[in-house]
């Protein structure tokens, strides 16, 4: 089966006054209908830019993109603005991190929903409105018939994100890109929003690209996981292989910094240092300045993504030998087990 979205060697470079920022530097991943791929990484690692590039929403003036974005087998990276515009909101929809600012404050949500329908379908206002009410009901907005006349500021954060989801799903898109959809919400609301997205995915067979820095969200929703670091994919595989057999020290760091309910620890493990500047990334492996296992070769050569021996569809980019890795994975598991015991 060919993937619905197949991103190949995607590169996005921004020209700035200080030089060229390689915000996305050779990213590959694919997602099939009804599946979810999680893109994980710290702030500024290029995960959001990846998605904005897929949508064609980067500022055209200072951006250069290369590679391929195959949607339904067709490369949309070099599609005309008009064609991209028709895809956006109908075939590919997107929801954003901050529901408080993502809706236009001066228009009623009804108007914003109706606009989304009418941009893509020749439909009367009345019919579009009917569909908007249905969409609001589907995402669990109570009294949708009257609330459709309300303005964004009259909704809570969780409700606004539901409205955003309704707006994204109203034209029944094949692909939904969710850019940290739960980051700005409180924990109970997060769980509701994730459950809602899962329900809609099951009913509509939508493919989802879930961008997050929260491995908990990934564990809950994703089938495949792409771990990004400094504009590059450093590990990718099924959610099982990433959680049970993580192969990159950065992934270990992310897993180690995950809060655990029964853990009896003073403070969470953290990855020391900060992500590198994408203007002048470090030579060799980009994680080497922060990596506790750094070797000489890491400072010389950039590791390529290599298949993990004995596993299918699991790749990683680290020079560390398998033996050390196996030992460290076992140790990590032990810590987790001990903490949760």
């Amino acid at each position: 089966m060919t993937a619905l979205l197949d991103v190949r060697d995607l590169r996005t470079h921004f020209k700035t006054d200080d030089g060229i920022v390689k915000a996305v530097d050779g990213v590959n991943f694919a997602v099939e209908s009804g599946q979810t791929v999680g893109i994980v990484g710290e702030s500024g690692c290029g995960k959001s830019v990846t998605c904005l590039t897929i949508m064609g929403l980067n500022e055209a003036r200072n951006t250069e993109s290369s590679g391929e974005v195959l949607f339904n087998g067709e490369n949309i990276l070099d599609a005309s603005p008009g064609k991209l515009r028709r895809l956006r909101g109908s075939e590919i929809a997107m929801i954003f991190q901050d529901p408080m600012t993502s809706l236009n404050p001066v228009h009623s949500i009804g108007r914003q929903l109706v606009e989304t329908v009418q941009l893509h379908e020749d439909m009367s206002k009345k019919a579009a409105r009917g569909r908007a009410v249905e969409a609001l009901k589907e995402v669990g907005i109570p009294r949708a018939e009257t609330r459709i006349n309300d303005y964004p500021h009259q909704f809570s954060g969780g409700m606004r994100q539901r409205v955003m989801i309704a707006m994204a799903m109203i034209n029944d898109p094949k692909l939904l890109i969710a850019d940290e959809p739960t980051t700005a919400l409180d924990v109970t609301t997060q769980a509701q929003i994730l459950a809602l997205m899962k329900k809609l995915q099951d009913e509509h067979g939508t493919a989802i690209v879930m961008i997050t820095h929260d491995l908990g969200v990934v564990a809950e929703t994703a089938h495949d996981v792409v771990v990004m670091y400094a504009a590059k994919v450093i590990e990718h595989g099924s959610v099982d292989s990433i959680f049970k057999n993580p192969h990159h020290p950065y992934t270990w760091g992310l897993l180690g910094s995950l809060p655990r309910l029964h853990a009896d620890v003073e403070r969470l493990t953290q990855i020391p240092g900060q992500p590198p500047s994408l203007l002048r990334p470090p030579k060799g492996c980009r994680f080497n300045p922060r990596c506790p296992y750094v070797m000489n070769i890491c400072k010389q050569k950039l590791p390529e993504l290599m298949p993990v021996p004995g596993e299918i569809d699991h790749e990683q980019a680290c020079f560390l030998d398998e033996e050390t890795k196996a030992r460290e994975i076992a140790r990590l598991k032990e810590i987790v087990m001990a903490e949760t015991a």
């Binding site: 028709r86 895809l87 956006r88 909101g89 954003f96 600012t101 236009n104 606009e115």
Partner: peptide, 10 residues
């Protein structure tokens, strides 16, 4: 953000 949303809607 809502301007980006508008573009994302097509």
């Amino acid at each position: 953000d809502y301007v980006r949303t508008a573009r994302a809607k097509g």
